[in-house]
Amino acid sequence: MSKKIVAVTACIAGIAHTYMAAQNLKKYAKKEGYDIKVETQGAMGMENRLAQDEIDAADVVIFAVDTVVAEPDRFEGKPVLKVGTSEVVKDGKAAIDQAIALVN
């Protein structure tokens, strides 16, 4: 079974990087054959909110954030890769690879 990733993206202004990082994670997860679901915490609030069972079922969590994650308790006990949104915008593949490396 392919590895499951859940991710949260959030930047300071919540206008652009939150959504670029989300797309880039999806793009490279898909390219490498992983399941991914991404929750955005931007200027429009929380979107595509991760359900607790989705989080529980995930192998690894990526926080691509420049600020704090809202409702972090949901992720307690999960392996988390924390990166900045710019890093993910620059190199989405590296973020996915690093996350998978945490649990392989």
């Binding site: 670029m20 880039n24 429009m44």
Partner: peptide
């Protein structure tokens, strides 16, 4: 972006546009 733009359709479009920049 206007200060009270939360939930605004235009803000949503900027978010979509941002995502497409990764394409």
């Amino acid at each position: 972006v206007a200060p009270q733009a939360k939930g605004n359709a235009h803000l949503k479009m900027l978010a979509n546009l941002s995502g497409r920049l990764m394409d």
